[in-house]
Design a protein around this nucleic acid. Structure first.
Lengths: 355, 355
DNA sequence: TTTTTAAATGTGCACGCACACATCTAATTT
DNA sequence: AAATTAGATGTGTGCGTGCACATTTAAAAA
């Protein structure tokens, strides 16, 4: 351990027998350095471990950076409202260092809207972008433009392998489905049916949801004695038939569990389960939203898997800010833990803001 | 939102019509300021929101601070080894800002050792202390000395209400027991016996473990139809009778679940359960230790409640460093979420280092 | 009134880095 | 040999803060 003062540029200069200017040029390789000087400096650099003082570095260059956050309209969806909270919090944290974050909302159910908004963002020319790429093709085309303009960007929530983002922040969705399955399986001794519910206005596009289903099914397939039947339903709550479909599902006597793949859908399913008094059905869904909280406390929802949208967004902004200010590389993949929330531990999550 | 440059001390000085020196004195209230000047400055301060530039602040004061971490010997216990990892990581993070962290280990099973080591630490005179106060009385007396020497300190892992620490970092242990109970209860339809196991060389002192037990019992008491019997055993694995006691416990046909209150004990219990082929017994314990991991993956352990010793320690050091360097107040109580770990989500926790 | 004294206020510097600019060196041209 | 030039190297300044020190002010003592 090397305690004491850390090495400064000045120290390197002295050791190498050159001026700080020369060391600076070598460090940032801006040329204009003779071979002999370059050798002397690199020789010193190899011997000692120079760690630039990031604090001092930032002080001087008092630049203002603008980050655009491209997310579904937070006023129309509680999940994305959480996301937006994270962005606002990050914005507060970084504002004093000249980082300006602006949320640019698009319509969650309208590809065209995403396409249009993405162009606007690009024309606005921010220094970096945080984007939730809900729509596959529209996102890929947007990425191309980002790269053309050399605007660094980070993906979160949904991963898309095309393009060259700085990184991705989110969860392993297949594994997420497996966690749901395991929780469903626990202590179920009799043959039963489990339902996978996709409740969404526009399901067909959501690779998102299908990955969760895949994991869920995988888990049960791996169990030797698979005494369970698994059915899946994609329902649109705005269709007239929705209520009937839900009712007929809940009337099945063999139904012992429901796994809902969206956070919003979880509350919807819970309300039906409660209405029909089917409290013995194990209900597993997503996220600590206000609506879900109610049903979790009443015992209707047994487990929530927390996707932590707030922290995802907050971390996304942080990574970008670090990239812009300190040239610190963002982690290429930041997979969040698959947090299991129950009636008994939910408060501990709500109280501890940061974690 | 106020974009653009943030306000500097210089700006306040100009607005108040005084010099930066006067503003500085007001901000840090070191006196030597006339009433009129003080009023002018505070008037400005109330109107605008001044956020000192922490970056610049750190640059100037290039002090070296020493933090002592007073914890059980990490080489003798995997749980405390995790703690130590957190300390080492924090030490790395902060080293370049002149924070030096030193781990001072004491013997987990020897009060006298704690007493002695605590005196040594005090005589050494660190700038702050992070302490895991395992032993009640010895800790209280140590706190008095800390306060006498005006050394700020933070508690973690175990809370002790005496003394005036900057804060406490840990978990709500009663609630932790309740989480264990809920997980035990889930899907158990037939009458059964659940055992609470305290496996430790030196149980009698551990308020720690008893709180968990309290929460566990509480939960079942609240359930209306309590068809379960709950027994508790305090066992010392170094006693000759230990094996027999474990065997006779596991031979009970009505035993359907075991809740182990220590991280080390969890692995011990798991080995017995596996040896006697009682894989249908639900086993719930603590912490993602290497040993436990094995049994979690094999399915012997059903749930682990994660106390996150690594992050607790890391955060403790961070709080102290922030206190020393930036005069940022540490949160008085930082309660960690009660993370539920299963076979299916454990990897997601291991992979995401930070969270 | 002049001198002393303490309180009040202002000024200047260091912190480590980045960047602009000034100076120096040596090779090339006139 | 003198002048030009481009490449190499060194110097200086600002960033915002905290703190030491210098200076001013006004009240008290001579």
């Amino acid at each position: 351990m090397d305690f004491g003062k850390s090495i400064r540029i000045k120290d390197i200069a002295k050791l190498a027998g050159v001026s700080v200017g020369t060391v600076d040029r070598v460090l940032h390789n801006r040329g204009r350095v003779s071979d002999s000087a370059l050798q002397k400096v690199t020789a010193v650099m190899n011997q000692i471990e120079y760690k630039p003082n990031l604090i001092a570095r930032t002080l001087g260059s008092n630049k203002n950076y603008r980050i655009a956050a491209l997310i579904p309209d937070p006023t129309l969806d509680p999940y994305w409202a959480q996301t937006n909270l994270g962005i606002i919090q990050a914005q507060k944290e970084w504002s004093q260092y000249g980082i300006i974050v602006e949320t640019i909302p698009f319509d969650l159910y309208n590809k065209e809207s995403f396409h249009r908004i993405a162009r606007e963002v690009i024309d606005d020319g921010p220094d970096a972008i945080l984007v939730a790429p809900i729509f596959y093709y529209e996102s890929v085309s947007a990425f191309e433009l980002f790269q053309l303009r050399e605007i660094p960007y980070i993906l979160f929530n949904t991963n898309i392998l095309e393009g060259k983002p700085l990184g991705f922040i989110g969860q392993n969705l297949t594994q997420s489905g497996r966690v749901g399955a395991q929780l469903m399986n626990l202590g179920q001794h009799e043959p039963a049916t489990f339902a996978i519910l996709h409740i969404d206005e526009d399901v067909h596009d959501s690779i998102h949801l299908l990955e969760k289903e895949k994991g869920f099914r995988e888990y049960f397939k791996e169990q030797q004695k698979s005494k369970f039947e698994i059915v899946d339903l994609s329902l649109n709550p705005h269709q007239i038939t929705f209520d009937d479909q839900m009712r007929s599902l809940l009337e099945r006597v063999d139904l012992k569990g429901i796994f809902v793949s969206t956070s919003k859908g979880t509350a919807v399913a819970a309300s039906f389960v409660e209405t029909y008094g089917k409290s013995d059905i194990r209900l597993i869904g997503y996220d600590i939203l206000q609506e879900n909280l109610k049903y979790l406390k009443s015992g209707t929802i047994d487990f929530l898997i927390n996707q932590n949208p707030k922290r995802q967004a907050q971390l996304g902004i942080s990574h970008l800010a670090n990239h812009l200010m300190f040239k610190r590389p963002a982690p290429q993949m930041d997979l969040f833990p698959l947090e299991i929330i129950t009636q008994q531990n939910v408060d501990s999550y709500l109280e501890s803001g940061i974690h």
